[in-house]
Design a protein around this nucleic acid. Structure first.
Length: 401
DNA sequence: CCTCCACCGGAAAGCCGGGTCA
DNA sequence: TGACCCGGCTTTCCGGTGGAGG
């Protein structure tokens, strides 16, 4: 092994880690207690409790902004429920699906199938066919299923509420028992639903308010004791994490990210404890990393759209769809890339807006038409860095970054 | 008050690479 | 092997539309 590397490793090992169990700072970690969410846990528990006696429970609808504990509470309650039911030895199953990650009706269904022990090919079958097979198994085993559909709004916005409608009526075909827990970030989500689906889905409702700064502080204190060694995080850093996350609509996930990244920075610098400065730098790093990561994963044409906005903005020109399209076309022809249509580029701009990389606003310029006014949503140097890493053909493209 | 620009954005359909099934 | 399905990406078509300027 190289001597340089040996030194690095030796020094790393010689410094005691400030972490005890960094896993406890990840989003998917479900701790044994969830501060300030006991009421919600109790409410959800009450709704789901009938399954303990073998009855179907009401469907529940859970709303709340990101990082308010919806997912954690749901997973927590389901976990407890399952362990309790296994004592009673029932054929109950619970299934958690994140609709945004899973993406399509077909794949949501195939998750449900695997929850009841049915394997289906990941593509190739008609969706109706998969649904058919699913109900058959439910009927045959007289199964009992609670399905948590997280980020359900993403599914409905993209694919409509057909699947929800079918699921909400499933036991009318005497196909076992199925209850739904719908989780949504978006309060306006209801508007997208068929009234029949809505009324069956929201038999019960739970609303999660954002955490306050003090509540976030309690959450952090819990996690600090789980994940760091004693005294490794200063009081001030915890408060700062809480305050910064509270400003960002009380997002606990954000607070934990800040703490984790600040911890990693401190460890990297072999500092004995996490200081407020680490937290501040963590905040910048998180934003930078987010932008880089998102840009990196973008399809080539989306990257070119961002590059076009970047170029126009640097020249101080105003970015309208038309202007962006012209710049984009020039860049394409420089590399000999096929250009997409303006309609498509308009769509890509909207997607980038949703991703938070661009801000796009439809404005009217009266006589001079109607268009989208676009600008970068993050500072130019951050975008520049992300683009220069993510555009493999930057030299050829003539995008002088 | 009307016109008309430069787009917006919905809908439908096509293409392609992945797959199943009989 | 051919009919058929999915999902992602894209094109084509086309009916809007806010408001400056006539």
């Amino acid at each position: 092994m190289s001597r340089v590397l040996n030194e690095v490793f030796d020094r790393f090992l010689a410094t005691p880690s400030i972490f005890k169990n960094p896993e406890a700072l990840r989003h998917d970690y479900i701790p044994n207690r969830l501060p300030h969410r006991n009421d919600h846990i109790r409410s959800l528990g009450k709704v789901l409790a009938p399954v303990l006696r073998g009855y179907r429970c009401s469907n529940v609808f859970i709303y709340g902004k990101p990082g308010t504990g919806k997912t954690a509470v749901t997973k927590f309650v389901l976990k407890e429920l399952i362990s309790r039911i296994h004592e009673l030895n029932s054929n109950f199953r619970a299934c958690y699906v994140n609709c945004r990650l899973v993406g399509t009706e077909y794949r949501v269904l195939s998750k449900l199938c695997s929850a009841v022990g049915l394997r289906v090919p990941f593509t190739g079958l008609a969706t109706d066919e998969v649904f058919e097979r699913f109900t058959k198994v439910m009927r045959r085993h007289d199964s009992f299923l609670v399905v948590a559909l997280d980020e359900i709004d993403a599914l409905v916005k993209n694919k409509g509420d057909k699947l929800l409608y079918a699921l909400s009526r499933i036991d009318r075909f005497k196909a076992g028992q199925l209850s739904l827990v719908g989780i949504s970030n978006d309060l306006r989500f209801k508007e997208f639903l068929d009234p029949r689906v809505l009324s069956s889905l929201s038999e019960e409702e739970l609303i999660f308010q954002p955490y306050t700064s003090t509540e976030l502080r309690d959450i952090l204190l819990d996690r600090v004791s789980l994940s760091f060694i004693d005294g490794a995080v200063t009081e001030g850093s915890i408060n700062l994490c809480a305050a910064l996350a509270a400003a960002e609509h009380g997002d606990a996930r954000r607070a934990l990210d800040l703490l984790r990244v600040a911890g990693e920075l401190a460890e990297y610098e072999m500092s004995a404890s996490v200081m407020e400065d680490h937290v501040r730098r963590a905040q910048m790093k998180i934003e930078k990393d987010r932008v880089s990561e998102v840009v990196e994963g973008l399809p080539l044409h989306s990257k070119l759209v961002i590059a076009s906005v970047f170029l126009l903005e640097r020249l101080g020109k105003n970015c309208t769809t038309g202007e962006i399209y012209e710049t984009y076309k020039k860049t394409c022809s420089k590399v000999g890339l096929d250009v997409l249509t303006q309609r498509r580029i308009s769509g890509l701009i909207n997607e980038l807006d949703v991703l938070g990389l661009l801000n796009a606003q439809v404005i009217s310029m009266g006589r001079y038409g109607r268009t989208k006014k676009v600008h970068l949503a993050t500072p130019m140097d951050v975008v520049k860095k992300a683009l220069s890493e993510a555009l493999p053909v930057k030299g050829a493209i003539g995008v002088d970054l």
